[in-house]
Design a protein around this nucleic acid. Sequence first.
DNA 1: AGTGCCCACG
DNA 2: TTCACACCATCAA
DNA 3: GATGGTGTGTCTCGTGGGCACTGT
Length: 533
Amino acid sequence: MPLLVPNQAPPEGYYAQNLRAVVDTVCHQYADLLTSDETYFANSALALSEPALRLLARLLSRTKTYIRLDSLSYADVGDVSKALHELSEADLISLDASGEASEILNLLTVTELKATFAHSDLKGRKSELIETIRARHDDMTIRVRISERQPWLHVIASQVFEVFCLLFFGNNMQKIEEFVIRDLGVTRFEAYEMDPAFRLFRDRRAIDRYQELQGLAETVESLGKTVTAEDAEDICRSLMTPEEDRVFELRRSRILNALGRNLERVNEHELALRCYRSSSAHPARERMMRILKKDGRVEVLEEVRAEILDGPRSYEERQFALRFAKPRTPQPTIELRESLAPTDEVASIENFAAQQLVDEGCQAWHLENLLPNGLFGLAYWDWLYASVRGSFVHPFQTAPLDLYWPEFFEVRQDTCEDPLAKPEELKARILAIADTKRGISSQLVAWSVLSRSLLNTILGAMKTEQIQGLLRIVTEDLRQFRAGFPDLTVVDQQGVIAFVEIKGPGDQLRPNQRLWIERLMQAQFNVYVWRFR
DNA sequence: AGTGCCCACG
DNA sequence: TTCACACCATCAA
DNA sequence: GATGGTGTGTCTCGTGGGCACTGT
Ligand SMILES: [Mn+2]
């Protein structure tokens, strides 16, 4: 029986308990790195009376930070106005009618706006209405007039609480709602070990820098191709120093790559080159080569090419350096089937092709990367959730933090058994883990797609060496081979497995797709491209 | 009156 | 709010 | 065929209420 049931009252004090858990954990882990504001928030929150903490938990779970008082009706809080005053006394919320006029005006409905700011000519969309009101009254008048009818509060603690969530989850995407999703039973998480002494953020600088990088990413994103040289200079100044932490460094490099790409679009080649030069992430050097080619700077181009070949960052980067701006060299030939494209509209060309294979007597599924990722995730389940310092930092993870980093296998090989060492047991191992772990969230295993019978059929159609071969490819480079797998997995009437990449008119193989196909052919799989014209 | 979006909620 | 992929336009050989 | 640009599906769920907006 799950802790929470939709539309049924949660256990007494449930949301407050979640809030307390986050604040407690962060305080224990990061007490010495918190600013005075953050420490103050933690102390005052933990010192609140139970009703006030319950109310605060609700307020912090709202998406907006300005909230109408008449929208607060929480039975488990009891005396709401008493709790409000307590929160206000603790400076966790403000009751003194603060805020931007436009934001506050948005708290009212159209009807209320018209009633509160009675003008005969108020009409149009709500946004236009608000503009009109703002043009006629100053902010103070607006606030006063609304607060007389519809008092509201501002959740001061919101910003600081975001930092607490960042420290708790180690990222800006997961929020405190994770608790609810888990307690409803929607997601189950593996019972991995965590080291409470481990810190994702080493020092205060790391916390601040994380947020700074987030801001820069947003700026670059929002500027897009309206970016000017001055903008870029500004942003670059904050991005030119390599980060010590590799996660930060990857983040920095990706922002530089995005900025560089935008600069290319506005023909700022020199600035773009500077961004790419400072970046340590693919495709920075690829973009450099393209720019240099365009500008006819052959010598520098060759220098970059040599640099890549000397230490390629990925298989794809190396492949690009080998082939770019060079006479065409033959590539391994791939079996090709060709058909006419369906005349009438179909939902997707992949499903159309799959249906045709079914009509021919085969079994066919559109699985793409879900198959290799799923098989790897199952065969290496214990590797994924092994106790490795720093790989798990909170209870809501679906993969270890170092999954896509080079030392993933190295740091686990002493404690985990290599599934490939006993190839004859692979099939049974994968099926057994699928049975025992079914439903537990994994970044690699899509349970809804990989049913027991599907796994049975597919694994049954693969020879032991083929399963081993497939996993060898994936484990060669988890990052590279997490994408590019052929669209369809097919088992024919003789029980022979094949993989098919479907190409509609005007679509062609991408480098990672070609790479997967070549590897699969080497591993003795039937693979072909099915092109519709 | 109908439709579709946003948001709180469990 | 990303990532992987398909689709589409354009250009060149 | 190469390249660049854009669109789509995907979300850790499902539901219900309130609201804006549209059309009669
Ligand atoms: Mn395809």
